[in-house]
Design a protein around this nucleic acid. Structure first.
Lengths: 165, 165
DNA sequence: GAAGATTGACTAGTCAATCTTC
DNA sequence: GAAGATTGACTAGTCAATCTTC
């Protein structure tokens, strides 16, 4: 006997999905139109500037953005072709590849960030009060915690019929 | 002078983005592994079952899922090839195309739904109390409202330098 | 043989151009 | 010519296979 979502849950769930989809589409369009960057480009550039160095191993970068490694590899190839980043070999361990932010890459993120942040503020934070911002952070942290737990179970369990209960 | 996000806002924002990405990835993987459906397939099937009839015009379906029309067209082509839906011409107006849910399509959504809902409940609603569910619905509705407003302005305005603030 | 990463073949999505019917 | 929808060329992402170095 399946326990379906009740009306409150269903409407919250659908609103969340709709918000996600439309918010990302809107942010992506704005970045694309104003700077020729995609959200994916932006994410990589942020990861690269976030850490003090302008340089990260593919593996580290992959952990930060949480993408499939092949997706990251291809994204970096495209960004390198556009001159936003450059690949560099590691001398200590020839298996690892570093990704360096170029000056052009830094310039791109610096010119894109203000309008992007302004839009995020306009669409999200200007519309929410402090309590809602805290609630949002709590909710997201809670769900992320569940996702982590679930992943651990999966690693431990013998590939059973989850999720049953 | 850009007004950046403060720490609270930044962490809420990043948590939201991370939750989105990981939640969708998790749900997609579960659907794919257990029924060979993607989230996109599931969304179309839900739209088609949601409305009483098992049939919708492309245009109506497009409004429900809020996708680019070419994306929808290709998705329907793929689903038709797999026998989940079928395209049908309209006699009154030969320009319009109907999409009908097939028996196989109905069977697919019916077999997929229980585990999908169970996972949504497990990851999201079991972890949140009533207050949080209401807060989430409020927040999402607020942000969706902003997105709508913004879109209307865009339609009205002469393509100015939005978003400035 | 495992770690770190890339490649190849395929599926999915986007944008502009096109086709058909009204 | 506008409404309704599809197509074609391209970019993006996924999964399994591969390559290189440890």
């Amino acid at each position: 006997v399946t326990r379906w979502l009740d009306d409150r849950e269903q409407s919250a769930w659908r609103a969340l999905l709709a918000m996600n989809a439309r918010l990302l589409a809107r942010l992506n369009r704005q970045l694309q139109d104003t700077c020729g960057l995609s959200i994916a480009d932006y994410e990589i550039l942020v990861a690269l500037t976030d850490v003090g160095e302008r340089s990260l191993r593919m593996g580290e970068l992959g952990q930060m953005v949480e993408w499939e490694k092949s997706r990251l590899s291809k994204q970096v190839t495209r960004m390198a072709a556009r001159g936003l980043v450059v690949r560099r070999d590691c001398d200590d361990d020839r298996r690892v590849a570093y990704v360096d932010l170029t000056d052009a890459g830094r310039a791109a993120i610096e010119s894109a960030a203000p309008a992007h942040v302004a839009l995020v503020r306009h669409l999200v934070f200007d519309a929410l009060d402090d309590q809602q911002v805290d609630a949002l952070a709590d909710i997201a942290a809670t769900v992320l915690g569940r996702l982590d737990l679930d992943q651990d179970e999966e690693a431990a369990a013998p590939a059973g019929i989850r999720p049953g209960g």
